[in-house]
Design a protein around this nucleic acid. Sequence first.
DNA 1: GTCTATAATCAGATAGAC
DNA 2: GTCTATCTGATTATAGAC
Lengths: 214, 214
Amino acid sequence: MHTHTDSTACDDLAGAARILSAAQHLFAEKGFAAVSMHEIAQHAGVSKSNVFHHFRSKDELYLAVLGAACTSHREQLVPLLSGDEPFGVRLQRIMHADLEFMFAEPERAQLVLREITGTKPDDAVQPAPALLRDNAAALVAQMRIAQQNGEIRAEIDPAAVALLFLAANKFYFLTRNLIRHFPDVDFADDHGRYVEKIADLILHGVLPQEGVPK
Amino acid sequence: MHTHTDSTACDDLAGAARILSAAQHLFAEKGFAAVSMHEIAQHAGVSKSNVFHHFRSKDELYLAVLGAACTSHREQLVPLLSGDEPFGVRLQRIMHADLEFMFAEPERAQLVLREITGTKPDDAVQPAPALLRDNAAALVAQMRIAQQNGEIRAEIDPAAVALLFLAANKFYFLTRNLIRHFPDVDFADDHGRYVEKIADLILHGVLPQEGVPK
DNA sequence: GTCTATAATCAGATAGAC
DNA sequence: GTCTATCTGATTATAGAC
């Protein structure tokens, strides 16, 4: 009566979806090499052979998981970039949306970032690096437009702004479990406060403005 | 005639040092789980059993490698922090030194950063997290002093500046092999240019200074 | 699609000779 | 300190029944 199989237990997912979900969870937490197919099968509530039935190899399963993570990340930044608010407001909105997106699906974000930060010299056309490249390019393009509109200083390198923005957000996400315990940090659990403080720094810099406006 | 053993081949190192070197290389490149003791033994030019003779387990070997990496990192930042140059110059000097240090021993830096960015909620007292904690604390303390001297704005959170600084440098290092191929980026192989651009951003912000000095 | 059973290999780790 | 040989269990993957 159902479309096909009814699931045997646990989640409302069935078959391959259950396996993908378990694999995403484990790969994100422990990394590719530290996870076994046995472990994935257990978490998915199926037999190990069933995992091999749906995915021909461990690599294929990992690529399926990573591909899904990249796909869900791919178009998230672009529609947020434009807008007619002042640059400062737009920057805060983009930072906040990027954070919300990562914290909403931390496992997928972790997978993508692990691929990006552990990349060796040669593998430049993998899905995760390509994702970063595209998002960074869109970000830089937007910075350039803002610069043409006189919203940011003419001497600035748009790529440097994009790097600073991405670095701050990704580093904040990656070290979230560490800086929570740092006595000096009061924004580890309050993304809004974090965005306000970092955006203020990027916008106005740290120097007192009494100096020469140049 | 020698102090003790003379090495059989390859490097000028002998025994445990050869093993440590090979292990550092492999762990940094592929991560703990993806490296086997067999592989380490091969790269070190010794038998697998010999590795187990010097290090009781794979975990112990990894901790030895990681510990060495953390020790060499530990005190590098602190002596650079103070100085009587203007804040802007000091910031550039510290950023540059931190980068030089990471690029001089990229394997050790990679190991430490992998531990920091892959940390799970609970393990807060490991060597690498403790290292980040100490370095960040020293950085924040220095920012506070600069703030008391009126070198940076009073409204600023010193921890936010420290996060921005660390994030920019570490992200730049971690993605060095990727951003090298980005068409918008002209500072991927020129640390000096990178430091200049990022330091300028952190110091002066992106906004045109025609606005209110407030 | 799902399972049990099993193959073939490789992992970490140990024993004991030299 | 270094080696060869070995143990034990885990790993990826396959065969074939249901």
